Simulated scan of single mutants.
Amino acid sequence: MLILGIDPGTAIVGYGLVQAATAGHLQAFAYGCIRTPAGEKASLRLALIYDQLQEIIKNYRPDIMAIEELFFNKNSRTALAVGQARGVALLAAAHAGLPVAEYTPLEVKQAVAGFGRAPKEQVQRMVQALLGLKSPPDPDDVADALAVAICHASIAPWRQREAGVLQQ
């Protein structure tokens, strides 16, 4: 299964494609970030994010998109902008017919670092270790996107089993 992990933002959108094979083996397939010009209008920044995500989806053909749920901090303006970028990512997935799984930042950190309040540096190092990368992914938006994909690889089987039990 090829998982596209997304860490939404308006300045930088991190993305990471992780191949999840049998026996829990994970491999980084591709990763990077989409950067938007700081002085550009919000609508044009969002259009750029949408276009780039569509291109990534078209080129790599992932099986699912895993995206971080919105985390509200004290700055509501930042949260609103991130929410818009997140919405554009969800729209890109919907237009491509790509299923979406959503995870809280706490779930992502718990799945990757074993601690829901792990600092960014620890998440970066764990992503590096879990994927066998030569160095920690940089910027941290890329590490976060890879972490979301890793989270999906580890949590999805449990969610599927749980759903099967609940349906019986």
Rank of each mutant, 00 (worst) to 15 (best):
A38W: 02
L26H: 12
Q160G: 02
Q84N: 11
K58S: 13
A89W: 11
R117L: 04
Q54S: 13
R117I: 02
P157N: 08
A93Q: 04
V88P: 05
R117N: 06
M1K: 09
A118C: 03
Q27F: 00
I150C: 03
A129C: 04
Q19V: 03
Q128F: 08
A28I: 05
E69G: 03
E121I: 10
F72T: 08
R161W: 06
G32T: 14
E162L: 08
T36Y: 06
I49N: 06
A153H: 09
G24Q: 11
A94E: 14
L106Y: 15
I6H: 03
A79W: 09
G116H: 06
M65V: 10
F115D: 10
Y31E: 11
K74N: 11
A163W: 04
I6P: 04
A129T: 15
L48K: 02
V123I: 15
R86C: 10
A156I: 05
G14I: 04
Y31M: 06
A129D: 04
P99F: 01
Q128I: 14
H25K: 15
G5E: 10
K58C: 09
L90V: 04
E68K: 12
G9L: 07
L106T: 15
V100M: 08
L17Q: 07
Q167F: 14
G83L: 08
M126I: 14
I57G: 11
P136E: 12
F72M: 15
R61D: 04
G114D: 05
H25E: 13
P136C: 12
P8M: 03
N73Q: 13
L2K: 15
P136F: 04
K134G: 09
V142K: 03
A149F: 13
D7T: 09
T104D: 07
A30R: 12
P99T: 12
A153D: 11
E68G: 04
M126C: 07
R45H: 10
I12Y: 00
E107N: 05
L133A: 12
Q122H: 14
V142R: 07
P136V: 15
L146S: 01
P157Q: 09
A11W: 00
K120T: 10
F72K: 11
E107W: 01
S135G: 02
M126K: 08
R35S: 13
R86L: 08
A156M: 12
L70M: 02
H95R: 15
A94F: 07
I6V: 11
A111W: 00
A101E: 15
G32F: 04
Y50T: 05
Q84D: 13
Q27R: 15
Q84E: 15
V142P: 01
A81C: 00
Q19E: 12
I64D: 08
T36M: 13
E107H: 06
P37A: 14
E121M: 06
V123P: 01
L90F: 09
V127E: 10
V100A: 05
D141K: 03
Y50Q: 14
A163V: 07
M65K: 06
N73W: 12
P62W: 03
P157K: 03
E55R: 15
A30K: 10
A81M: 15
L48V: 02
V82F: 02
E121K: 10
G9S: 06
V123H: 05
V165T: 02
I12P: 02
M126P: 07
L106K: 13
V127D: 07
I150Q: 08
A89T: 06
N73C: 05
A81I: 02
M1A: 09
E121L: 11
A47P: 00
A145R: 00
Q52A: 13
